[in-house]
Amino acid sequence: MFERVIFQLLEGAFICRVSHPDTFDFLCDENNLRSVEDFFSQIGRRVAKTSKQSGFYLVFAAYGEQERSAIRSNYTEIKNNLIPVISFFNLVIRTTGQEDILMYGTAIEADTLIGKIDQDISLRNELQSLGSRFKASSSDTTQRKLLENIFKRLVNDGYLKLANPERAIYQVTSKIEYLLDVIKFIHETDETLKVGDEQPEGETSSLI
């Protein structure tokens, strides 16, 4: 099990009860976690927990010259992928009304989702534009196929786990907490967003 944990972390996986139940249980044991951390401390890395403590992932132990390029490339990847992923989860919230979709472990039923999207033209358009953001659509792709492609992509990216293939039920993994951390950071540091937040208040006060 030790070996499996090491390789999964080295490959950049988020280990939680949804995505890797066996190895998650292994890491929940303090002694096991310590032995894994001892191993990684020798190669300049350590095991971190997501903000709500539901998953483990690997981070650099320090920010040095060597780590800078890896961190830069990681951030570039986030820049490229973050907006489509946010748009997807927002579409699910808008379609089902379930805000708890952003909690790790929540289930998404693909059939229910596509059924609701089918009934609303604005949601259908949103799915279509989401498909092009994910580069998952072509001229002959049906709505269902499009959604399947997006789900597949999010499973590959580690945000979802196909929990029940027969009923097409997906579960949100702990990587969602990583996504929320990124949003929080951007929210706190990007001045553009602060201006956007303050704008409605300014308008209201001027009306008063």
Binding site: E11, G12, R45, Y57, L58, V59, Y63, N74, E77, V182
Partner: peptide, 14 residues
């Protein structure tokens, strides 16, 4: 400031 998420090692394929 380098928050924890930014320090993530995106992984390698041994």
């Amino acid at each position: 400031h380098h928050p924890l998420w930014m320090m993530r090692d995106a992984g390698i394929r041994p």
